[in-house]
Simulated scan of single mutants.
Amino acid sequence: MTYFKYVAMAYAVFFIVLAWDFIVPRLQIRQHLREVRNRAARAKRTAAAPVDEELSR
């Protein structure tokens, strides 16, 4: 009786978790950077819009 299947599955789970820990933070960083760029672009568009100080009816 060998434990090859058990050891192979343990290594497979280890590498899946290792890959998950490598990939997910990069995806989160990419998402946060995209949100910051969009927020900066939105702020720039808002600042560039002409502001009419006088109110009218």
Rank of each mutant, 00 (worst) to 15 (best):
I23R: 05
R30G: 09
F15A: 05
T46P: 02
R57G: 08
T2L: 09
R34I: 07
T2V: 06
H32M: 14
R39S: 12
A49D: 02
Y11I: 12
A12V: 07
V7H: 00
V17K: 01
Y3D: 15
W20P: 02
R57S: 09
A41N: 15
V36P: 00
A8T: 06
K5L: 13
E35S: 06
A41V: 11
L33R: 14
A41H: 13
I16S: 04
V17G: 04
M9Q: 08
M9P: 00
M1T: 09
A8P: 00
P25Y: 04
P25Q: 03
R37I: 14
Y6H: 10
Y3M: 13
L33M: 12
R34C: 03
D52G: 01
P50C: 00
V36I: 15
A12K: 02
L27F: 08
A43T: 08
T46D: 13
F4E: 13
R45Q: 12
E54I: 15
K5T: 11
E35Q: 14
A40Y: 05
L18W: 07
R45V: 09
R57D: 12
Q28L: 10
V51S: 08
Y11L: 15
D52L: 11
D52C: 04
R37C: 04
A41S: 14
R34P: 00
P50G: 00
L27C: 04
R45I: 07
A47T: 03
R30P: 00
Y11G: 10
A10I: 04
A10H: 02
V24N: 07
V7G: 01
A49M: 09
Q31W: 09
M9F: 12
R57F: 13
E54A: 10
A8I: 10
A41M: 15
A8H: 03
Q31A: 11
M1E: 12
L55M: 08
P25E: 03
V24I: 12
A19G: 05
F15R: 02
N38E: 13
A40E: 06
R42Y: 08
P25V: 00
A49Q: 06
V13E: 01
I23F: 12
N38P: 01
E54M: 10
F15I: 06
V51P: 00
R57C: 07
F14L: 13
T2C: 05
R30S: 11
T46C: 08
A19H: 01
L33C: 04
S56P: 03
V17R: 01
L55Y: 09
V51R: 12
F14Y: 05
K44C: 11
A41D: 14
Y6G: 05
T2R: 13
V24H: 08
I16P: 00
Q28W: 07
A19M: 05
F14Q: 01
M1C: 07
R42D: 08
D52N: 09
E53A: 05
K44L: 15
L18R: 04
E54R: 12
A19C: 05
T46Q: 15
K5M: 10
Q28N: 14
D52H: 10
V7C: 01
I29R: 10
T2P: 07
M1F: 14
T2N: 14
F4Q: 11
L18T: 03
R34V: 05
Y11S: 06
A47Y: 07
I16R: 00
H32F: 08
W20N: 02
K44W: 12
A40V: 14
A41L: 15
R30F: 03
N38F: 06
V13R: 00
V51W: 10
